[in-house]
Design a protein around this nucleic acid. Structure first.
Lengths: 132, 132
DNA sequence: GCTTGACCTTACCATCATGGGAAGGCCTAT
DNA sequence: ATAGGCCTTCCCATGATGGTAAGGTCAAGC
């Protein structure tokens, strides 16, 4: 399989496959005589693992740890669960932060009549609102 | 007021004030004879407006529009409300996305016993889970 | 065997908002 | 006068991804 086929099969773009190789997240792929990268099913599975982990929001740094555990047949599932829980907690924090922004904005937007007049509580808040 | 004082008074770091000036988000500040930037209360208020807008998640690009409306005394509040609503919608989308990630992870973590054994449904999912 | 088009390679640039640091100048209090 | 704290500009880094350009390769059709 060349890089384009591996990309289609894994859902990771060719560009990103090369990037992951350059940063050491995945080992350097084999090459044909003319320099094309070659991928086996095993390597494609690893790429799918990475893709799925990215889809769940794990940063590449954490995926490195996940991959190490994946390969380690004597891993403790507690270590995997801990990484997952940390990710859940991080998501929770970001969600709460964005929900707070959204609530504030919704409150302001509700108070704005949104017509042709210049009068606007949203702008008033942005100009005079609470300081950090 | 010099840049350090303006930073303290507005909550925007000196670094970012210079950056906003370099990108044209704010007009170039006046200078003392020796080249120090000088800020008036009006300019500090504009910086606070920016800071508050950033805290509500607006990208700088949108803040440019908000600032223009802020200065425009014949604005239509409908335009402000539209910007706010777009921001609310964007936040909503990101929240939903992250909530879906979190739910999936929670489900997987709940199924992982998290002990010393290597057996782990989280890794199984990452390796074989749904394709994009 | 030659052309064509699709693919591969590397290398560089851009994003977006922010921080870090270096090298050098200015200002104020002692 | 000197020390330390502020200012200036300039350059680099982040994180994950996309774009583009210049050049090599492969496979299919003629």
């Amino acid at each position: 399989m060349n890089i384009g086929e591996a990309a289609k099969a894994s859902g990771v773009s060719a560009k990103m496959i090369r990037y992951y190789e350059s940063t050491g997240l995945i080992p350097a792929a084999g090459r044909t005589g003319s320099g094309y990268r070659v991928y086996s099913d095993t390597e494609v599975q690893m790429l799918r693992f990475i893709r799925r982990s990215r889809d769940l929001g794990f940063p590449v740094e954490k995926i490195e740890e996940l991959l190490a555990l994946w390969r380690d047949r004597s891993r403790h599932s507690a270590d995997v669960k801990r990484l997952a829980q940390e990710q859940i907690d991080g998501l929770e924090r970001k969600i709460a932060e964005m929900q707070a922004m959204k609530d504030t904005l919704q409150h302001l937007a509700d108070a704005c009549c949104g017509d042709h007049r210049p009068n606007c509580p949203i702008l008033v808040d942005l100009g005079n609102g609470p300081m950090p």
